[in-house]
Design a protein around this nucleic acid. Sequence first.
DNA 1: TAGTGGGCGATTGAGGTCCC
DNA 2: GGGACCTCAATCGCCCACTA
Length: 309
Amino acid sequence: MTRAKKNIPPGQKSDFTGEKAEWLDSFKDTILGAGRDEIRAEYTDIANRFVLRYGYDLPFSDNVVGDPTLNPPVIPVAVTEEEKTRREEIRATLRTKLSNWYRTRYRNKKANGAALKQILGAMQGMAGNAQRPRRKAVLAMYWKLHYEERVKPAFDAMWANTKDSVPITMRVSMMQDYVRSCWEAESEEFKKGVEDQCSRVHEEAMKKWRAGRLGESFTAEEYNDALESMEDVVIPLADALAESVFSDTAEGAISKMWAQFDHLGFTATEASITRYGNAFFTTPEQVHLSRKGPVFAQGLIAISLGNPY
DNA sequence: TAGTGGGCGATTGAGGTCCC
DNA sequence: GGGACCTCAATCGCCCACTA
């Protein structure tokens, strides 16, 4: 039984929808055009404008009725320290929300670029320039290792009693608070064990990362594994390159076959890449690869394996 | 050179929708 | 029905620019 499509995006709803989302969207060009040095000022500026437009008391997830400029909020001068603190906290939260909102939409890669991410990840891994591994925060390690047994039963019970009285968007922050309180209640010995594990995992990851950067040669097994994973992404990429190249222009998106767009260039490039692939791989490897995809793809795989950048 | 501030990307589990 | 995919908020480590 298939449900009727409602054209509603998956996932939880954003705090900024409707008129607010449209208004924030009007700053798109400003955000996209801002350099690293300017972006922080832009976020702050938009947060300031947001407060002037919607006030401090409108819940983030709510929208005003009608045009907010026709009935602007009345914001009296904050006379008490409490009120000043409250406003500062609202502005800080708002600024974080706004920066996340803009980054997610305009400054980060699109989430649905999973296939591209896989291709780039495989290529990075082969080239030995994968991102430096990050040390997992001790709380994150605790969460990962012990959430199910030490936190979840109690948190689930608490959430069941609370969820009808608070917005769903509170859930994550409540969970984070709860995990933190559980962590703080653990014994010093237990905490040290988790911290040690963080260090061990990070050291191990760093060891592998450094080895890759130093250009240590692959073992036969690692080479073969890498080759297999490259086939999954490079061969479809080779097909895609040969089939269609899309180009965004001011006049709108146009689609052209690369081979049609620049026939001489395409033919010369294809021949060069293919020659390189033939020279790079042994005959048995060529036979193995040719069963899986076009000869052109062998050249692309060879370039990825052969460039030590 | 050391310290600081802040942007960015990764991360977490659950909830919501869509598709098979 | 169940898995895939995407979203949410807030935190943290990393990195870089800037300042003293």
